[in-house]
Amino acid sequence: MNSSMDLSEHTAAASSAIGIRPAYFVQQSNGSFRPTTSAAASWSDGVLSGQAIAGLAASTLERKYGAVGYLPARLTLDLLKPARAVATHTQTRLVRHGHRMRTAECDIIQDDWIVARATVLQYRQAQCAVDEPWETAMSVVAPDSAENLHVDDDGTGWSPMGLRHHNRGRKRAYYGGLDAVAGLPATPFVRSAVVAEAAANLVTDLGANGIGYINGDLTVALARLPRGVYIGVQADTHFSENGVSVGSATLFDDDGAFGSSMVTAMANPAARMEVSGRG
């Protein structure tokens, strides 16, 4: 870990002492964001997790461009290079501001390099009559509690994530994530981005030998915002060939399914991840 992470640890500890909940980043007086230890990736030292980056991008876009009456229906995140435990900046731009649709972008920048780029698409909500739609049948019982990420293997029952989940069963995950920025409680939209990034690649690519793929993107599509703190992610599809995989998953809460997520990923055999646990 470098000195910037040491500083962020000190800042996070100070935030905790005054009652601020754990978060992936702490905003500094100059507008930059310092990552906390909670933002660290589990697969490499000095690297930030995708869920931390997703949370920062979603939080930034929503705070700057979110509007009453508009639903953030899609967030697309491209993870362009590994984000490190250093000072992080955001840069945004409004692409379209229409009556029915709004689009904006956010770059996540470290040392003058764009490490990730996110796009949010918002639709104006309306009460209107539509024909009875076709719907996917889905029946999942969520765990009673999930302080940490819980996983279910094709109906075997929920338990904290660990090596027991190295099998070929279809996976479901249940998680709440952390706040993206200290002092800014995660909104339903931010929580959707955080949980989808934390779990979509996990449930679609986790097999008997761990996770052999690393995702380079995330797409989250929402028909409504989630209700409650915890969000479930159920794997729907997984296809792979020649070192490339694509996986899709359904997002659900206690009231049922409300959206979907998709990740594309590259084979990563030299650094295959074992899921021994995640906070």
Rank of each mutant, 00 (worst) to 15 (best):
Q91D: 14
R93I: 14
L94K: 09
V95K: 09
V95E: 11
R96W: 00
G98T: 03
H99K: 15
R100V: 01
R100A: 13
R102N: 09
R102D: 04
R102Q: 14
T103F: 04
T103P: 05
T103G: 07
T103V: 15
A104K: 02
A104F: 02
I108Q: 04
D111H: 14
D111Y: 10
D112F: 03
W113N: 15
I114W: 00
R117Q: 15
A118Y: 02
T119D: 11
Q122G: 06
R124S: 11
R124G: 11
Q125D: 12
A126V: 09
A129M: 13
E132C: 10
E132I: 11
W134H: 14
W134M: 12
E135Q: 15
E135I: 14
V140N: 12
V141F: 11
P143D: 08
P143W: 05
D144W: 05
S145Y: 05
E147T: 06
L149H: 04
L149K: 07
H150W: 10
D152P: 12
D154A: 15
D154F: 14
G155I: 01
T156I: 08
W158K: 05
L163Q: 12
L163E: 13
H165P: 06
H165F: 09
N167Y: 09
N167V: 06
G169E: 00
G169M: 07
R170Q: 11
R172I: 00
Y174W: 15
Y174R: 02
G177C: 04
A180R: 03
A180P: 06
A180H: 03
A182V: 07
G183E: 03
L184N: 04
L184T: 05
A186M: 06
P188A: 12
P188S: 13
F189M: 10
V190A: 08
R191W: 01
S192F: 00
S192P: 07
S192Y: 01
A193Q: 07
A193P: 05
V194C: 07
A196G: 12
A196M: 10
A196I: 06
E197Y: 01
A198H: 03
A200P: 03
N201T: 14
L202F: 02
L202K: 00
V203A: 11
D205V: 10
D205Q: 14
D205T: 15
L206K: 04
L206M: 13
G207H: 13
G207E: 08
A208G: 12
N209I: 07
I211T: 10
I211P: 00
I214W: 02
D217H: 00
L218Y: 02
L222F: 03
A223W: 02
A223P: 01
R224W: 00
L225H: 12
